[in-house]
Design a protein around this nucleic acid. Structure first.
Lengths: 114, 114
DNA sequence: TACTTATATAACTGATTCGCTATATAATGT
DNA sequence: ACATTATATAGCGAATCAGTTATATAAGTA
């Protein structure tokens, strides 16, 4: 699934730092290298992962290839999280309603399950 | 970082199915097993990952240990995504403003960088 | 053409992940 | 005590991951 790649891409701090940096404008590999003390090939690897997840893309500009954030690609992840939250809260609302109902009709001995 | 574990936990479809299921109420290991064709130990392993990420917790109920979703633990992930989105859109707003400005003052020959 | 800069790819290593089967533990029912 | 049910843990193999160094490719400059 695509969400697999998205969330997996987000699970690494270096990659999150790259995305956060790209949110405020494109950047080259050399510029992105400043975000972490890792080697240039390691940065290129992370960029490949992000690209495969559809989160960024490369632009050709002379000898460099600045990366651009594709922010829309984060939407499915945001929506998934939001859906779970909404479902959870709706469930809570139901529980609250149930508790309120029990308040109105306090527990009796037995046989009150009609 | 905690976000590492959260996003890594979310990167597996079985684990996302478990969370989605738990959003509408607690469930036992046996019940969760129905979500996927994998073995019971595999389910327990996924539950451990989710628990280590702080996304669920176990309750003791007789011989079973129903899991409960801790939905608040998803908040940091939601906020991270939202922050990136906001930063990206703010950046876009700046670019739009810049373009509008260029519209007002169309390009001149040279020396207009004062 | 030769040199430099920017980036990608290959090959290797160690750590982690995911599934499985087999087995252990813990509570429940007879 | 014993069998059953629910769950956890151990141990294994295959696959993937994150980092490294060395090297390839591609564009820009002297």
């Amino acid at each position: 699934m695509q969400l697999d790649r998205t969330f997996a891409a987000l699970s690494d701090p270096t990659r999150r730092a790259i995305l956060a940096r790209l949110a405020s404008g494109e950047a080259t590999v050399t510029q992105l290298r400043a975000l972490s003390r890792i080697s240039q090939p390691a940065i290129s690897r992370h960029l490949k992962v992000l690209e495969e997840a559809g989160l960024i893309e490369a632009r050709v500009a002379g000898q460099s290839r600045p990366r651009v954030l594709k922010a829309e690609a984060l939407t499915p992840a945001r929506e998934w999280l939001e859906d779970v939250r909404a479902a959870f809260e709706q469930n809570y609302a139901r529980l609250d309603a149930l508790l309120a109902e029990l308040q109105d009709a306090p527990p009796t001995q037995s046989g009150d399950d009609t």
